[in-house]
């Protein structure tokens, strides 16, 4: 699993209660706004964080979301990186979870992972049954 050093991140959010979902969403929104993302991208980032936080709360009961600003790629594009990790039950079929959950027709399934992937520029997931799940997503800031 991914090793995390909290000191490397600008924001560390502990997800434990249902209300932490809304809090993490707000924190992500403020941070993305400060990074000068377009309003649409700020909303996409906040929505993705909301989905990640909910997954943690629903499936693992508790976990962390780490957010940082960085420069990525050969063009040094300003990028927001979000890492969500938990020590929950893990996902048995990652492929299916990422590709399938496109519908919102069920309360528990769907996971919103496919949605998150579509909102962000890059998406990486590691999951091990019984050990936990880590999702890393990034979004680059577009010019003007």
């Amino acid at each position: 699993m991914i090793e995390v050093n909290p000191q490397d991140y600008d924001i560390v959010l502990k997800i434990k209660d249902e209300s932490d979902i809304a809090v993490s969403r707000q924190m992500a929104k403020n941070f993305a706004q400060k990074m000068n993302f377009s309003l649409a991208d700020v909303t996409k980032i906040a929505t993705a964080v909301s989905e990640l936080a909910r997954n943690i709360y629903r499936y693992a009961k508790e976990g962390y979301i780490y957010i940082r600003k960085k420069e990525a790629g050969p063009e040094k594009a300003t990028t927001i990186e979000i890492l969500a990790c938990d020590k929950g039950p893990g996902i048995e079929n990652v492929e299916l979870a990422v590709s399938g959950g496109y519908t919102t027709s069920e309360r528990s399934l769907g996971l919103g992972l496919a949605g998150i992937r579509r909102l962000m520029d890059s998406f990486h997931i590691e999951s091990e049954v019984g050990k936990g799940t880590a999702v890393i997503v990034e979004k680059r800031r577009r010019a003007f």
Binding site: S38, L39, A40, R142, A143, F144
Partner: peptide, 12 residues
């Protein structure tokens, strides 16, 4: 895709 996204935001 860059132009398409900027356009989508502007148009919306």
């Amino acid at each position: 895709s860059h132009r398409a996204q900027n356009m989508a935001e502007k148009l919306l």
